[in-house]
């Protein structure tokens, strides 16, 4: 059987890639995608921990399902906000959204 640590390493890598993407990308949609990567890394963690450590209790599984649901709701609101910004200024680049400064 594949050891638990492999899953955790994959999760950590995915999380770091997502985090790097969220900080470095300029396109709001790409940032959203990076955030989804981070959330999926968390789900890998939850499911791996659940399967290997407490397979008889449901907490880990339930947490993963709730995280997926919340991520979907968050993405819906996020995309709506991106569309609102796009309609008012014809761009989704976060560099060009810069009215508020100081």
């Amino acid at each position: 059987m594949i050891p638990l640590s492999w899953y955790l390493v994959v999760g950590a890598l995915l999380f770091v890639i997502g985090f790097y993407g969220a900080l470095s990308r300029r396109n709001a949609i790409a940032i959203l995608m990076s955030i989804e990567l981070m959330l999926n890394a968390v789900n890998i963690n939850f499911l791996a921990f659940w399967r290997y450590l407490t397979p008889k209790e449901m907490a880990g599984q339930v947490f993963a399902i709730i995280a997926i649901t919340v991520a979907a709701a968050e993405a819906a609101v996020g995309l709506a906000l991106v569309i609102a910004v796009y309609r008012s200024r014809d761009t989704v680049s976060v560099d060009e959204v810069d009215l508020l400064k100081g």
Binding site: A22, I35, M38, E74, L81, A84, L100
Partner: peptide, 13 residues
């Protein structure tokens, strides 16, 4: 709009 998208991106991360 701008405030909302900034709040959202920081908040989601």
């Amino acid at each position: 709009n701008e405030a909302a998208i900034k709040y959202f991106l920081y908040g989601a991360v």
